[in-house]
Design a protein around this nucleic acid. Structure first.
Lengths: 357, 357
DNA sequence: ATATTTAACGAAAACGTTTTCGTGTTGATA
DNA sequence: TATCAACACGAAAACGTTTTCGTTAAATAT
């Protein structure tokens, strides 16, 4: 077994100093042709690669960014990761992933673990529990320590940082407007509890679209699902809730759901109740994931562009990091530039499939 | 902005030496009560946390493990990551993720980036292109450098290391036997090209099950999909292929598909052709993902237990890493122990849903 | 022949830790 | 009173780099 070789070993072997080896390998013309050649040949032979940890320590930057998300077995979040990884890789960064599991405590633990030198900056989406508690001190703390954060999707105005969000409000408006154009008269909303910001915004969009089109919102047509429990494991509960909802409101001829699981489940329930999609009832979901694409009938959705969000977030973060060490600390102590934080809004569009006419 | 505080700064502030601070914080009784108290209070006040990079450099271990997978927007792989992250976190490790995107080159690049000190060991699943090329030198190289690898799912006998696989062969056997018991007489197989090991094993299981039950395998009933292109984007091609397959073989009354996408698509195609599932044709897939659960009818599948695979893989790797620095290098130079590599086989079971009787 | 430049290299510091090995004060013991 | 532990702490090395600043010898200029 050949352990990785170090500068010191090369130096000893070739009877020169460590500095000479370092310079020769970086092609410094401070070193003679001869020795440079010799050293480079030797290094190649033994497949020398500088140790990343040592470099990180010296440069005080790790060239890795930390991703902190609530859940990874989730189409949207994994799409975001893919986007982040793409640009991170292109721009010479690695990604290290932490999962909060929607837990406030795990979110904090993870941040503290990573914030101690392991990464140069965060890209994260806030856990449900944190949103519920509205306790954001850990975000403020790490930002205060000079570690930049980019938030995506589940963001919060209380924290000043770069953000990437999808236009939840207008996405919902578009969806509902589409249903109205398709002649739906009684449009239902299946949503989550309000504390997750995106759910709230989509709900507001639903209401807005109704009102501007002369509809009067009917609270009976709004079904709020308690998603504090992981819905994936409580599918039956979800189904019966929706079934009851449909049965007590038989006039429903259009459904807007704030995520694709609710939408697909609504379609399944409709089918069981003998209601035909899209003839009797049309359905639009949010987030364009696997379910939407492969459901029968396939689901019309509001696209969420997870990969694009990831790419934008990564670019925002890396731009800031690169700027940091280009301009040195001046970048931060400069009071003028103090709060030039950007919020990128990704536009949504409707992807029409079989669940609408 | 308060940058993270270091030992040196504490030392200067309290007018003691760095070593004293270090010892005081670790509770060494070499230091007097008084100073220990003073230092610990100061450290807590300024929220001192030791720098991970410095620790990594000193200890020559990073306490992070590298995950290298072909794709992350994929239910199975993300499940595995969740499993890895779970035990990694519990055992004090971080995870850093690289994506090969099914590319040989990206796989190598990623490994080289991470192998230079950033991680202590790998957990990976081989990319399709690598399997096709059958070039495994990069695995051998990193193993030779003393960095342990644990492979999962897509493994290869040419590389000696710990492995975690699912019992693809027997899973397929079970599935086909189930179809036979359910009175299917003409059981079709929808599979991938042979170079991906898991596909090959599942195909073999299909054949085995037929033969031991007195069936004669009919090559007309085997549909091999070329999955060199990303199927997600070529859904129509997949659908038309399956449609043709069904039409030229109307006798098919049972389908075993090596993944859930093929299975769900087969059901969709069947429905379009007016063939009823499960009355006219029964379908079983492999991998228990979102699609299986939420399809209508929901899909009977062979469970793949991604999370369990991840957990096992992580435990194998961390066991080895911990053993390494418990016994020192002796662990490795000890010739007796040289090839005590373990292959963990995760058992499969059939999850019965609506697509079978 | 002397002074000065240049070429080629080495020593040392620095990044932030931990740990081993001193070293100088005490207080107790012989 | 001399000797010796025990105590409380500091200096320095080490992990693997890069970089600044010498330093020496040769080469050039005066």
């Amino acid at each position: 077994m050949k352990k990785k070789i170090t500068l010191k070993q090369i130096a000893r072997e070739l009877d020169v100093s460590v500095s000479t080896v370092s310079k020769a390998l970086s092609g410094s013309k401070e070193i003679s042709e001869d020795t440079t050649q010799k050293i480079q040949a030797f290094a190649k032979l033994y497949n020398y690669k500088p140790n990343n940890i040592a470099l990180s320590l010296k440069n005080r930057k790790t060239k890795t960014i930390g991703i902190l998300i609530p859940e990874i077995v989730h189409h949207f979040f994994s799409t975001v990761i893919r986007g982040i990884e793409r640009v991170a890789n292109r721009r010479g960064y690695n990604v290290i992933v932490g999962l909060s599991n929607e837990s406030f405590a795990k979110e904090i633990i993870n941040m503290e673990m990573l914030a101690n030198g392991s990464i140069d900056g965060f890209i994260l989406s806030i856990s449900k529990e944190t949103l519920l508690k509205q306790d954001y001190h850990h975000f403020h703390a790490t930002i205060n320590q000079g570690m930049p954060i980019v938030m995506f999707d589940r963001v919060v105005s209380e924290v000043e940082c770069d953000k990437v969000i999808v236009d939840d409000f207008n996405g919902a408006v578009k969806a509902v407007k589409k249903l109205i154009e398709n002649n739906c008269k009684n449009i239902a909303l299946i949503t989550t509890m309000d504390y997750v910001s995106v759910g709230k915004l989509r709900t507001q969009g639903y209401l807005e679209a109704l009102e501007t089109n002369g509809f009067v919102p009917d609270s009976n047509l709004i079904l709020k699902i308690d998603d504090s429990l992981n819905v994936e494991n409580h599918l039956e509960i979800l189904e019966t809730e929706i079934a009851q909802f449909f049965q007590t409101n038989p006039q429903i001829d259009g459904v807007f759901a704030v995520n694709e699981l609710y939408a697909v489940t609504a379609m399944k329930v409709a089918k069981k109740l003998g209601v035909h999609v899209p003839d009797d009832i049309q359905v639009i979901g949010f987030t364009d994931g696997v379910l939407s694409k492969h459901a029968t009938p396939s689901l019309t959705t509001v696209s969420q562009h997870g990969q694009k969000m990831g790419e934008q977030a990564a670019n925002l973060l890396i731009d800031r990091l690169d700027a940091e060490d280009a301009e040195g600390e001046q970048y931060f102590t400069n009071k003028d530039k103090k709060s030039d934080f950007i919020t990128v809004v990704i536009e949504t569009e409707i992807i029409e499939r079989e669940s609408t006419k």
